[in-house]
């Protein structure tokens, strides 16, 4: 399949193929991502799930090319966005895409807003040129963006500073900024991790609504499987820079194919039903990128590991339908 026909109607808007990333550090070169492939279709919410350090944020940051390319990062692979390979674009072409066609929201809403400027100064920077022709037009546009994300009294809020707002309110402002240029792809990096549950539910409802109403593609990076269950259609599970399972959310949660996914699903305490005496726990901890051994990367922590798992590296293999997993023992547990 060529890049051109993948961008046609019905095709994916974002098509990452075999993306590998290495970071050059003082301690040597670290393999951070290894052959990550994923596709995002318009109007679809895709989850990227995994624990700290598994490479989920690095993946979406490379879609925006936010890494230090002069000194730090070596890319390998292709990232097609609407038929163009993002990794081959020039700096000015990239600048038009960032914040324009692809927007991003971050976990910490306080550090994604500038503390010394009023909300209106920051929001007006993102207003498109044609709305900017008159000052009041720009303000009205900014206020309408705040209203769109459910902020009451938008003209009053425009005059405030970030510290005058609560965490949930700041995250709404960050979403308003991300949406102001009408992006077709939204990258959300743990958008609700720092928020309380009642506020998390409000923010996730907002993102879901925008995704449905505007037909926006969304990649949701998170470690919370329950949030994924309620909002996303597809999910990719990452472990140590590799995708270990890809499936529809229903398949992933009801019959996980990879032992790591199984462990993640079982280790969550439940709000309903009988309480287990002990929680299911994945033993050990995530190794550092420099400590990766050969064979399956999860083998040292896996309770189903065979001698073969520590020797040979499994590939992502189809399980059933659109579900695939990186494991030698698919279907055996």
């Amino acid at each position: 399949m060529t890049a051109e026909n993948s961008a046609g109607p019905g095709g994916p808007m974002l098509d990452i193929r075999g993306l590998s990333i290495r970071f050059k550090t003082d301690y040597g070169v670290l393999d951070v991502l290894d052959g990550v492939s994923m596709r995002v279709f318009p109007g679809e919410m895709t989850a990227l799930v995994g624990e700290s350090g598994c490479g989920k944020s690095v993946t979406i940051q490379s879609v925006m090319r936010l890494h230090d390319e002069k000194r730090q990062v070596v890319y390998d692979g292709e990232i097609f966005f609407k038929g163009r390979d993002v990794l081959k674009l020039t700096r000015s072409e990239m600048r038009a895409i960032r914040g324009g066609e692809i927007a991003m929201i971050f976990q910490d809403s306080f550090s994604s807003l500038d503390p010394i400027f009023r909300i209106e100064d920051q929001l007006l920077e993102c207003v498109p040129e044609d709305a900017k022709r008159t000052q009041s037009g720009a303000r009205d546009y900014a206020a309408s963006m705040l209203e769109r994300v459910g902020i009451n009294e938008p003209y009053l809020r425009l005059r405030q500073y970030p510290f005058e707002m609560s965490g949930g309110m700041r995250q709404r402002v960050a979403i308003a900024m991300a949406l102001s240029r009408g992006p077709s792809l939204l990258l959300a990096d743990e958008p609700t991790t720092a928020l309380d549950v009642t506020i998390q539910a409000q923010v996730m409802e907002l993102i879901r609504e925008l995704n449905r109403d505007l037909g926006m593609g969304v990649i949701l990076v998170t470690h919370d499987l329950a949030v994924v269950s309620e909002t996303c259609e597809r999910a990719l599970v990452m472990y140590l820079g590799q995708i270990v399972e890809e499936a529809s959310v229903g398949d992933m949660l009801d019959r996980p194919a990879h032992p790591y996914t199984l462990g993640l699903v079982r280790s969550i305490p439940q709000l309903e039903g009988p309480k287990p005496e002990r929680l299911y726990a994945i033993e050990g901890m995530v190794p550092l990128p420099g400590q990766i051994t050969r064979g399956c990367r999860f083998a040292p922590r896996c309770r189903y590991a065979l001698p073969r798992c520590c020797e040979e590296t499994p590939e992502l293999r189809p399980v059933q339908g659109s579900q695939s997993a990186r494991c030698w023992r698919i279907g055996e547990f």
Partner: peptide
């Protein structure tokens, strides 16, 4: 408001 892996849809339930 607590999300659950048993639900596949957000219930309209967020308190404002």
């Amino acid at each position: 408001a607590v999300p659950s892996v048993k639900r596949r849809e957000m219930a309209g339930r967020a308190i404002s």
